[in-house]
Write a protein that binds this DNA or RNA. Structure first.
Length: 445
RNA sequence: CGGGGAGUAGCGCAGCCUGGUAGCGCAUCUGCUUUGGGAGCAGAGGGUCGGAGGUUCGAAUCCUCUCUCCCCGACCA
């Protein structure tokens, strides 16, 4: 993509409503525009990141054995009456009346809908277990939306639902999702720590929140630093091996890691040596619940068991805040000049900066790099704008593409280009050919 | 929902107290000069002053009502 053609309305000054880093940077980098309180338009740069995050979530869900589907945003009130939540959910639920005076709502979550579909279509224990998910926009009419996309009213969420014949099966499903969440967040370059959680209005008795450590997070968290160093990506997980899943989960859950609500200072001090105590703040990016028959009973999700008897299925639900993750990643990955995207979610892999458009040697080198990187499968942003170098550097820092190739007249006469990582780990002057080789070899994350 | 604050050009703001017909910086457009970290000069365009009523010869400014947005708190992917 040529930057001169790209729809990227960056801002030099910060709109005054934005308080926290991710919100400021998303507005300044031209990723989103606010439409009304807690509702955002995703501009091309932001949309690219959203899609990449969504894709990682999708791949890990599929890998864990879940199947993707798509439920509507608008739901009938009727199914919520059946579960008893229509009145319980309160003013957070956006209620809608259509032209026939039918009561509808914009879905804040989908337990009712999926359970109804399941109940209507699945008859036998032979069809179990099942894990079904979708990635769809939700609406919760928050009293006070804030922090940009981190607490919006409209947000993109992946929600998965598991159906099992018995408790043991439900726990197996829970474990699969637990491990897939560990992998999902790790792939995005995040340290997301599972912490014991309260179950809230969704109900149930087994739940963990996944918390990304960030100083501007909404929850206070306390954990053993040991949990920060666990690597879940280097080993390949066999989702069919319940023992292996249990072992991974145990490594995380045996050490102290709790949010404020569950924190007990005396336990923390007793079980964690002082040097390993981490106290900070975090952002909740996912939560997993086991809730048994809370919905399957009222909604009639019943299958025939092996003995011919009717069995009410065991369920769980598993959410990831996809749009919130965009903000959470920025909170965890930025500096004073802008965003520092982890490779896996970056909107582009490489940015080429032409310091002197119109200069024959610079233009030729840039076009060569642009073409070769693209044919090597890289997403390339080429800053071919007729702007001064300072403007280009400032914008590049702001939008935070992981790799940067700077091509200017000073270097090009010695046959050199500058190759830099936005995170500061690489800054070299090398020949164009060497730079291209190194970028071609660079992992995308 | 309790408490606080703000709506004036795309963004950031001044003007309001003490009414007299809207201004600054950045951005945008044109031209020239510049070009390795947000350039300089010259010129130009752009505003129902959130909205509705009222007071007045006259309202961005005073009064009443209203809408929207933000911040702190309580609640939440």
């Amino acid at each position: 993509m040529r930057l001169s053609q790209f729809y990227l309305p960056t801002l030099k000054e910060t709109p005054k409503e934005a308080e926290i880093a991710s919100h400021r940077l998303m507005l300044r980098a031209g990723m989103v525009r606010q439409s009304s309180a807690g509702i955002y338009t995703w501009l091309p740069l932001g949309h690219r990141v959203l899609r990449r995050i969504e894709q990682i979530v999708r791949e890990e869900q599929d890998h864990a054995g879940a199947q993707e589907m798509l439920m509507p945003t608008i739901q009938p009130a009727e199914v919520w009456r059946k579960s008893g939540r229509y009145d319980d959910y309160g003013p957070e639920m956006l209620r809608i009346i259509d032209r026939h005076e039918r009561e509808l709502l914009y879905g804040p979550t989908n337990e009712e809908l999926i359970t109804e579909i399941f109940a209507a279509t699945v008859r036998s224990y032979r069809d179990l277990p099942k894990m079904l998910y979708h990635i769809q926009w939700k609406f919760r009419d928050e009293v006070r939306p804030r922090f940009g996309v981190m607490r919006g009213r409209e947000f993109l969420m992946k929600d998965c639902y598991s159906f099992d014949l018995d408790y043991e099966g439900a726990v197996r499903s829970y474990r699969k999702m637990f491990v897939s969440y560990l992998r999902t967040f790790a792939r995005m370059g995040l340290k997301a720590i599972p912490m014991e959680a309260a179950t809230g209005p969704i109900g149930g008795d087994l739940s963990h929140e996944f918390i990304v450590l960030a100083p501007t997070g909404e929850s206070a968290v306390f954990c053993d630093r040991e949990v920060l160093d666990i690597d879940v990506l280097s080993e390949d997980v066999d989702y069919g091996d319940d023992g292996a899943l249990g072992a991974v989960i145990d490594r995380f859950t045996r050490v102290y890691a709790r949010t404020e609500e569950k924190h007990v200072a005396a336990d923390f001090e007793k079980t964690v040596p002082e040097a390993r105590r981490y106290e900070g703040r975090g952002i909740e990016v996912g939560q997993v619940f086991y809730f048994g028959k809370k919905y399957s009973t009222p909604m009639g999700a019943v299958v025939t068991g092996p003995d011919g008897q009717a069995v009410t299925v065991e369920m769980g639900s598993y959410g990831i805040g996809v749009s919130r993750l965009v903000g959470a990643i920025i909170e965890a990955c930025h500096d004073d000049n802008g965003i520092i995207w982890p490779d896996a979610v970056a909107p582009f892999d490489v940015e080429i900066i032409n310091l002197r458009p119109g200069d024959e040697a610079c233009d030729a080198a840039c076009m060569e790099a642009y073409a070769k990187l693209q044919s090597a499968g890289k997403d390339v942003l080429y800053d071919d704008r007729d702007e001064r170098p300072g403007v280009k550097f400032a914008d590049a820092d702001l939008i935070g593409i992981p790799w940067r190739m700077v091509i200017g007249p000073r270097g090009i006469k010695d046959g050199k280009v500058e190759l830099k990582r936005r995170d500061g780990t690489v800054a070299d002057e090398v020949s164009l050919a060497v730079a291209l080789d190194r970028l071609a070899a660079a992992a995308r994350g």
